[in-house]
């Protein structure tokens, strides 16, 4: 005996056009534009954005050298895991304000810095004491992984 089921499957990719949307200020590609935007997590979004520094190559050494402790997130806008880590870094920037410099470097805009630090995967988060690297985390991890590394050095 053989049962029959109706087969008229059209692969998802052929049905839907990809749309560009913004999510919490980030441009993201999603399969659908119907779900509502939700930025509740970033309640202190404006505040967070101020605490988090975006560093250019020219200002990098001075900024990181002056800081007793720094955490730098090498990222790029086209990278999904980097986008995921974005809100975590914004949150940590507020929590460690005055204690550590929390910064981001766009590897697309600052390729020399990325090369200098041998960044071959993004996100890569580098920890520095007075400009000297002492730890790095490759990939996106829960906040506790970063706070642990920071707290050990404080």
């Amino acid at each position: 005996m053989r049962s029959k089921l109706v087969v008229d499957y059209v692969p998802e990719g052929e049905k839907k056009q990809k749309n560009f949307n913004t999510l919490c200020g980030l441009e993201v590609t999603t399969a659908s534009a119907t779900a509502t935007q939700n930025c509740d997590l970033n309640k202190t979004k404006e505040e967070n954005k101020m605490a988090l520094k975006h560093l250019k190559t020219a200002e990098f050494d001075a900024a990181v050298g002056e800081a007793p402790l720094a955490m730098v997130d090498f990222w790029a806008p086209w990278c999904g895991p980097c986008q995921m880590l974005g809100p975590v870094m914004e949150d940590l920037a507020v929590r460690y304000e005055g204690k550590a410099l929390i910064a981001k470097v766009d590897v697309d805009e600052e390729p020399e810095l990325a090369r200098r630090f041998g960044v071959m995967n993004i996100p890569t988060v580098v920890f520095l004491k007075e400009g000297r690297e002492f730890d790095r985390k490759i990939g996106a991890f829960p906040p506790a992984v970063y706070t642990e590394a920071l707290d050990k050095a404080l």
């Binding site: 998802e12 993201v28 999603t30 990278c79 999904g80 895991p81 986008q83 996106a140």
Partner: peptide, 23 residues
């Protein structure tokens, strides 16, 4: 959404999941 989930992390009360170049 077609794609591979690369990583996931929980921050606050949300799980963030990265899928290729989106999340």
């Amino acid at each position: 959404q077609e794609g591979r989930v690369l990583s996931a992390l929980r921050s606050g009360e949300d799980w963030y999941v990265s899928i290729g170049n989106t999340m």
